[in-house]
């Protein structure tokens, strides 16, 4: 049990290192002078240029620059945004809370809806309706869902605020918008897993014991269906990241997504790189959680 966990942690460190290296290489690969890339669209004065050269050790050999970059990244120092005139860690730290709140709410809503859809909608025609809805959900650009929800519930009906992050009401529409595609996909995976499990011999055995169909579903099949669904954790994380980038724009919410889009459009590379490294860190965490969840669900994997 110890060895696989150690291996996992090792792999995690490796991914983080790879992400940081890739970020650093991206910086070098940027067209033009590295100093230009770091300044981005920020104010360009000789003083700032000198400051950048000193801070990034651009006058030293590349190996030293790289080592120094890694060393600082390990200590949470991700450089400075010259566009915003603030340290990157501060820029990102300040925007973390609203994004986390939104992502967590959306994930919770999506998972809950998926479970309900997969477990409850089991009659043939309900299934057909439900899987058609899911097809539409996963095929619709998330921003369109947001726009439609906005125009109906905010502009038409006035139930929810049009933009901003004030109060729980402001969270409802963005969370639904982000949660729906997750729900659509997860429900499909869960339903498929349930269907497969229900065809397995152990399901026949369970029925032959006099179990209700509902008990076979919940007590036996669900655990089996959770395995592929857990695999989707990493994918959902991608949807959430992609979601925040776009949904925060649509609903005018503050957050990491806004920061990222702004940084990308004004070539504020230090901020973009920090977001990439942060995403890698979150990915490592999610992956570890996924693996642990696997071990928890499936005893067959517990042999080391």
């Amino acid at each position: 049990m110890i060895r696989p966990i150690l291996r996992r942690v090792g792999a995690g460190v490796l991914v983080l290192w790879a992400a940081a290296t890739a970020a650093y290489l991206a910086l070098l690969a940027a067209p033009g002078d590295t100093v230009d890339a770091i300044i981005g669209d920020g104010a360009d004065t000789p003083l700032i240029r000198a400051q950048i050269i000193q801070e990034w050790h651009l006058d030293r050999p590349a190996v030293v620059q790289y080592a120094d970059f890694l060393w600082r990244a390990v200590h949470g120092d991700l450089g400075r945004s010259y566009l915003l005139q603030r340290p990157v860690a501060e820029v990102i730290g300040g925007q973390l809370a609203p994004t986390l709140k939104l992502a967590a709410t959306a994930a919770g809503f999506g998972i809950l809806l998926a479970l309900v859809l997969a477990l409850v909608a089991r009659r043939p025609w309900v299934r057909r309706l439900s899987s058609t809805t899911e097809l539409v959900l996963v095929s619709t650009p998330p921003f369109l869902i947001g726009i439609v929800l906005l125009s109906v519930f905010s502009f038409r009906l006035g139930w929810f605020p049009v933009s901003g992050d004030r109060g729980a009401a402001a969270l409802v529409l963005p969370a639904i918008t982000m949660g729906l595609p997750i729900a659509g996909t997860l429900a499909q995976v869960l339903r498929d897993g349930l269907d497969r499990a229900l065809e397995e011999p152990f399901a026949v055995t369970a029925r032959s014991r006099g179990l209700r169909e509902r008990s076979v579903l919940v007590r036996h099949a669900l655990k089996h269906a959770l395995l592929p669904a857990v695999t989707m954790l990493g994918w959902s994380f991608g949807v959430l990241i992609g979601g925040t980038v776009i949904i925060e724009q649509v609903f005018g919410r503050p957050g990491l997504g806004q920061v990222t889009v702004q940084a990308v459009s004004s070539s504020d590379l230090p901020v973009v790189l920090a977001v990439v490294i942060l995403a890698a860190a979150v990915f490592v965490v999610i992956n570890t959680v996924t693996d642990l969840a696997y071990l928890l669900i499936d005893p067959r994997l517990r042999r080391s």
Binding site: F202, T205, S208, G210, R212, H220, K223, H224, D298
Partner: peptide, 25 residues
């Protein structure tokens, strides 16, 4: 009636317990 009857009146044993018993329980 079937549920009362299954397991209570008739027990069923299938081939290969590796898949006929729930592997996660």
């Amino acid at each position: 009636d079937w549920r009362r009857f299954r397991g209570g009146f008739a027990g069923l044993v299938l081939q290969d317990a590796l898949v006929s018993l729930d592997p996660l329980r």
